[in-house]
């Protein structure tokens, strides 16, 4: 096949065609504009909103403490959730059926029980144990067998009814349930990586752990990061559930308390929407930059080079 030289042809003139009309789009645009106008009109004219009252009350010190508590809970629950999630994901992929089975049972339980139930349940764990303590398992029983009836080997303990216990219980409810979801996300990320990558690393003499840390997880990040961003945003919203533990210095509880006390419930609910909207918007911006950071070395991604 030969290609005709095109130099002989004159430059074709620019096409001047009548564009296709899109009447449907115009109708839709009109509907949206009308709905928007009605909505704004309602916001401005309906007396139930009490804008001035809302603005005056949504930045009071207890509310700001609530914002801080909710953010702190989000960060801590996600850090623990991601860390434990990686551990459970690796356990799920273990060749040992006992280890893999234990991780499966964990995710099964924490994905099955609603978070609000977990929050109330963890708040009531004080019924099981008066103190949460860290030490050796079955220490009292074992030491009893050895002839020390009242001894134990606890390293430190927290009384279940002390001030911080509610916060810890709420944090654990959120973090442990998050770990179950993160385990599934991390596992999907790990299994998405070509097994040839692991083989190449092993052929170089890298250990299983080193291969995971240096080769598999960094590549799996591209699959893991976007859903983790969504999980973080969901977590921020779910911190409202720790009010049921109860943890009272949390954002939603504080706003509602003001509403109940002043009989202005509705404006404070709107204030809650605005606070959560603002905080999740910040998280979405962060998510965007984190995702860009983890797409290095991928064809078509701006990060390469």
């Amino acid at each position: 096949m030969t290609v005709q030289p095109r130099t002989a042809l004159p430059q074709p003139e620019e096409i001047k065609a009548v564009p296709v009309r899109h009447p449907g789009r115009w109708v839709a645009t009109g509907c949206v504009a009308v709905a928007l106008a009605m909505f704004v009109n309602m916001l401005l004219t309906n007396p139930a909103f009490q804008w001035e009252f809302m603005v005056n009350n949504m930045f009071t010190p207890p509310v700001l403490t609530g914002v801080r508590t909710s953010l702190l809970l989000t960060v801590l629950a996600m850090v623990i959730g991601v860390g434990l999630g990686v551990v459970f994901a690796v356990m799920r992929l273990s060749p040992s059926p006992i280890v893999a089975g234990a991780a499966w049972a964990y995710t099964w339980f924490f994905r099955a029980v609603p978070r609000i139930v977990l929050a109330i349940l963890f708040g009531n764990l004080g019924i099981l144990y008066a103190t949460f303590s860290v030490g050796f398992p079955f220490d009292q029983q074992l030491l009893g067998l050895l002839g020390f009836p009242d001894a134990d080997a606890r390293i430190f303990g927290v009384d279940a009814r002390t001030i911080g216990a509610g916060f810890i219980a709420g944090l654990l409810a959120l973090a442990l349930s998050e770990a179950a979801y993160m385990a599934e996300i991390v596992r999907a990320g790990i299994t998405s990586i070509d097994p040839g990558q692991t083989e190449a690393a092993q052929a170089l003499g890298m250990s299983r752990l080193l291969t995971l840390r240096r080769i598999v997880l960094p590549q799996a990040m591209r699959v893991i990061v976007p859903p983790t961003g969504n999980e973080t945003i969901a977590m921020l919203k779910d911190t409202a559930l720790v009010a049921f533990v109860p943890v009272t210095n949390e954002l939603f509880f504080q706003l509602q308390a003001i509403g109940n006390r002043t009989f202005q419930v509705f404006p404070m609910l709107v204030a809650a929407c605005i606070w959560y909207l603002a905080m999740t918007s910040v998280l979405m911006v962060v998510q965007h930059f984190v995702e860009r950071r983890f797409s290095r070395g991928v064809a078509g991604a701006g990060g390469a080079g």
Binding site: D194, G196, Q197, E199, A200, A201, Q202, A203, L204, G205, M206, S207, R208, I215, P218, Q219, R296, G297, V298
Partner: peptide
């Protein structure tokens, strides 16, 4: 596992599909 890894260190392998680390 660590002893197997040590044996592999002295054996180089080149794969049909390269298996370079893309990141």
């Amino acid at each position: 596992e660590s002893e197997i890894a040590a044996q592999r260190r002295d054996i180089g392998m080149v794969f049909q599909r390269f298996n370079l680390f893309p990141h």
